[in-house]
Design a protein around this nucleic acid. Structure first.
Lengths: 164, 164
DNA sequence: TACTCTATTTATAATCA
DNA sequence: TTGATTATAAATAGAGT
């Protein structure tokens, strides 16, 4: 992007490709951090780098560690909305308020664990370093996903049976 | 970054924060795609956006879909290395060559499924749209993680018992 | 190979439509 | 409020060390 305009295609020269990678990786990280700071959002970039043993992840300040947590809480919200009708709405607001604190604490924990999970998935951390509590929580997260998928399989198999 | 130099801090004004977010999100995506094209790496950015219902993920061209696949293959490689001694090395090279094609096909499939998993985790896709084959493969990936964690828990519990 | 230095290109903040 | 415009800040390709 300077001195010469560069064509947007794979850089075949090994050394200049590496140099460009290093520069742009740095630039990209900076952009991610700026976005999180300026706009108050959580963001990260993940790069499967050929120049490092592992894929690299930058969770920036707060990172993407709550992506999974969000997904899970969204599933719950959706279920909730379906069951919710106008009559029960007002009564539930009280319950909701009471549940807020508990949820906040739970969310924080889930974020922590999601961070750990991401680190494991990205190979920057192994399970060996985890204590029992963290491992248990990670298990819960992994197990949730697993069960969710199992249900879906069951549902699909039923449908397949019906269509025959 | 222009007209005026901007202080790197949270933008309190709602509309300008949103405008900046939109611009910078676009810019960041472009940078990610350029990096993948120029340097031949896989990369993505994940943003938990307050302006959209779901967290957004950009897998760019190839994306981060193989992050999990990498993690898993790394685990296997490590196990392999431990079991491998000098004597068996040469004999195994033949087997390895034969396994290459199978592995390549398997890897491609794993990438596909990892993409799907990421999309689910990021909320941009629900399990409802998956066919049986994809769901089964997703189950395998989720189940692997789950079992891995279960083993770790077992190991930790044993250690805790020994130390008492 | 890995920094440092700029000439340029690119990204974007403020402004305007 | 979203979409262009443009003046300026920031990123960076290539060269030099």
């Amino acid at each position: 992007m300077t001195r010469n305009k560069v064509k947007l295609e794979y850089i075949t020269n090994d050394s200049s490709r590496k140099a460009t990678f290093k520069k742009r990786k740095k630039g990209l990280l900076k952009k991610v951090e700026e976005l999180t700071t300026l706009c108050g959002v959580e963001a990260c970039a993940i790069i499967c780098s050929p120049y490092d043993t592992y894929a690299e992840a930058w969770p920036s300040k707060s990172g993407a560690r709550n992506v999974l947590a969000r997904f899970m809480s969204l599933s719950h919200e959706k279920q909730g909305k379906k069951m919710l009708d106008q009559e029960t709405y007002l009564g539930q607001r009280v319950v909701k308020a009471e549940q807020q604190l508990e949820k906040l604490m739970k969310d924080n924990r889930e974020r922590e664990i999601t961070k750990v999970m991401y680190e494991c998935l990205n190979g920057v951390r192994s399970l060996e370093g985890l204590n029992l509590e963290d491992t248990m929580d990670l298990f819960v997260v992994a197990d949730k996903t697993s069960k969710m998928v199992a249900k879906r399989i069951e549902s699909l198999q039923k449908n397949a049976g019906n269509n025959k």
